[in-house]
Nucleic acid binder design. Structure first.
Lengths: 111, 111
DNA sequence: TGGGCATATGTCCGATGTGACATATACTCG
DNA sequence: CGAGTATATGTCACATCGGACATATGCCCA
């Protein structure tokens, strides 16, 4: 259970990504599950960026490979709300991730 | 690379779930990535059923908990196309899965 | 036999996701 | 400075997802 002082920065981070973090209900009402889901998404988003840049690919190159567009790749990596986990996983698979790699990205304390 | 003899049964299994497995292109054109993605979904689908029944919950009970409907839960567990990974993950989180548990379900040779 | 319960399947339509495009910012190299 | 490249952000039309409902099947028990 994170202590109160961390909430504000987390809220800011999440809202920047476009998440509606308790617009009516207070932020503290954000359930653990919702928070976990978002963390998983961000974790995958970071994995996409890491994989891509370690391959020396531009967002445009990756976009071509997964039949998407540069803007969508940018949003994926930004952890935008408009990107599903499915899409993130597809991107990772396209960059050679194995199920094991994916599991690592999804699991806690992903490096 | 699976040998030819396994393809037919896999195709049958997948099409039963509603997947369009190479309707124009041949089945063999199903990329490894597409196959992996489907396997991950099925793996999560099974995890949902396992978790639910080990809790002694009916599909209806789970549906209530995740604010969904019995039919959707049935489809989730059946690995239906109309269910996203996001939905499966949300269901698992609602049943107390940790990120670690999720990683296990997604990873290869999930028990 | 029939009522009750769990699960499966099909359909509908409102909600959300996604590719594409336009545009903005920022950095590099002449 | 301007041209080229990489990334970010906003918008939109179309596709897919998902909750809800109806209905079907199968099982158990009185």
């Amino acid at each position: 259970m994170p202590q109160r002082s961390t909430h504000k920065s987390r809220k800011a981070r999440l809202e920047k990504r476009g998440w509606t973090v308790g617009n009516t209900r207070e932020f503290l009402a954000l359930s653990e599950d919702e928070a976990t889901l978002i963390e998983i998404r961000l974790s995958l988003a970071e994995a996409v960026r890491r994989r891509r840049s370690s391959r020396g690919w531009s967002q445009l190159q990756l976009a071509k490979h997964i039949e998407s567009s540069q803007s969508r790749v940018a949003k994926m990596e930004a952890g935008d709300v408009s990107c599903s986990i499915d899409l993130l996983v597809r991107a990772l698979l396209a960059m050679g991730c194995s199920r094991k790699d994916l599991a690592r990205s999804i699991g806690p304390r992903a490096a």
